[in-house]
Design a protein around this nucleic acid. Structure first.
Lengths: 335, 335
DNA sequence: TTGACGAATGCAATCGGTTACATTAGGTTT
DNA sequence: AAACCTAATGTAACCGATTGCATTCGTCAA
């Protein structure tokens, strides 16, 4: 391997000069610089990043923790993170945890072990136990889209889920729906409580009762959406509109409705959340709340960059704009 | 930060002994080991991976290059890679290239710069130019699912695309189809030529002409699928069955067909490829070829591991089993 | 002419864990 | 008892780039 020493020998200067010629050209005589660059060229020198990282104590790398990379909403956020990371000179280590808190912990500890400089979390469980909270304090860390409800002091990029839910609820009520159910993703998360809260608030404002039996909990998967919807349909009386807390859930719900021989939106209206690509392509096109996934990922990376580079860790919840996209999966309530 | 030196001072031994107590316990007196472990515990020592990597010259990290992470087929492969990487003690650096050859090159060079030990490529363009081929020779590298047609000496994990295409073609012919179109993903790739070849061979065997106008090329996206299908439908005579080289393409094609007021499969049969999760959920459920994505990713990582750890680079094309899944998007050819 | 100053460069320590080689202690063999 | 061996541990070099401090050299002012 070509090292800096070889360059310095070829040019007849010290390694310090070579280092400066490459990193701080203005500290070096133009002709020295020329000679160094030429030697770099002829020997095909590449700086050993390992050595650089070691002496600087930084890895120029961040870890992204995702529970399920196959969820297109999450993978878009990751794309945003990565795009921004590359701009800022960082690499992205992938941590797909498959909902396993222990794997989350492993990835979080990578920062402590100097394998990465910071952490971005999507839809996470960590920090989970008290010992995790200790770790969380020392690790530069940002949450995107979902966070743990608790008193943690790290930034959180999201949309105003409460307000978005209010918009969804108003939309359904304006179509005449009064029998409204919901299928949530994960329990005990800020997203779930905010979305549920927004829905309940609007129902309350319109004196429409909220039927707790019609509030289902599962995961952000098609499978869960299908099973939850089947459960709803098997009840004696079921809702005429179902608000799914993710598009994946909605897709599963739609499948269950069609399998039962019912029509969307004539019999049941469906609303999703996230606006993943496929929403426009499914039948019927899905009414959903658009979240700016890529932008959220980018922003998370920007903030993480600031944290890593010295800004004190402060609690910032940053809201991005959202849009309710009305498509064909919602319609007038059946008579 | 707690370093090995601190431990050694606390215990009253040298750093070498500490190192051995942790890495080669059998080289150290049991009681010494106990004392070291205790000190590690009380001081909360964590080895600095940066230093370890530096002195060993290895990063225990691999790069995965994907053109589009939001494609669920690719993200499943990545999941497989990651799962296996974790088992083998490796981390995964993500390289989403957005079809940009320059970004691919950046990621490939990470291996040369000691940022990673090896490279896994999905649906890639690299190596592209002659200078890339030089790089490719020195970099431990494995392709999954798609490779560049050319004389490169690195392993390739795939399914037998030619045979799978034959199965698709036979299935369509058995349903009475003779007017068969196809929508490909990328040009100039082994996958495209194999799949097209398999289709053409079977048509030839049945004395069915292959209409070149009905062979569309684009990318592996819903958007491309939709546009290609619209183009097909705008022709005076269009196929009664369309073989899409990915499920994403198929989903776009289905959208175009429905928008045109036609029915699937009564008017047009559609076949996809990959068997991504959503195939069961769309309307109608999609006939497709299942590829064992997770397993392919795992296997790619295993082989890369072997390459990194000394096995000579050899050209292996390894085929995984595939399955044609007949669902409801294919039916009898219209009279 | 000399002292001061600044620009350019060199010297050498440093980061923290690993490891080849050296040393020591304890036991065994002859 | 001397010679020898082995297990356990210590010493110090090493990986390669960075950087604080020292040095050199040329220039300008006193």
């Amino acid at each position: 391997m070509t090292t800096m020493r070889k360059i310095s020998q070829l040019v007849g200067v010290s390694t310090a000069t070579v280092s400066r010629a490459l990193k701080n050209p203005e500290m070096v005589l133009p002709e020295t610089r020329e000679k160094v660059l030429k030697a770099v060229e002829t020997l095909g020198y590449r700086p050993n990043i390992l050595a650089k990282n070691f002496s600087s104590g930084k890895t120029q790398t961040v870890v992204v923790i995702v529970t399920d990379l196959t969820n297109p909403f999450f993978s878009r956020i990751v794309q945003g993170v990565e795009e921004e990371a590359q701009k800022l000179g960082y690499s992205v280590l992938l941590g797909d945890t498959n909902d396993d808190i222990n794997r989350e912990r492993v990835y979080a500890e990578m920062v402590l072990n100097n394998k990465a400089d910071g952490l971005i979390q999507l839809d996470h469980l960590f920090p989970f136990e008290d010992k995790d909270k200790e770790i969380a304090k020392t690790v530069p860390m940002v949450s995107v889209c979902d966070a743990i409800d608790g008193d943690y002091e790290y930034p959180y990029i999201t949309i105003d889920n409460f307000a978005a839910s209010r918009d969804v609820a108003k939309h359904l009520i304006s179509l005449g729906h009064t029998k409204i159910g919901a299928i949530a993703g994960k329990d005990d998360s800020l997203v779930t409580s905010d979305r549920l809260g927004g829905l309940q608030r609007v129902l309350q404002e319109h004196n429409i009762p909220f039927n707790d039996d019609w509030f289902m909990r599962g995961g952000y998967t098609k499978q869960c959406g299908k099973e939850s919807m089947e459960a709803l349909l098997s009840m004696g009386e079921y809702p005429t509109a179902v608000y799914c807390f993710s598009d994946e859930i909605a897709i599963g719900a739609i499948k269950a409705i069609k399998d039962a021989g019912l029509r969307i939106p004539q019999d049941i209206s469906i609303v999703g959340f996230d606006n993943i690509d496929i929403c426009e392509y499914i039948d019927p096109p899905l009414t959903t709340v658009d979240q700016p996934a890529v932008e959220m990922g980018q922003r998370a990376m920007q903030i993480l960059y600031q944290l890593i580079n010295g800004d004190a860790i402060q609690h910032i919840t940053e809201f991005k704009p959202y849009t309710l996209l009305v498509r064909d999966s919602t319609g007038l309530a059946p008579k």
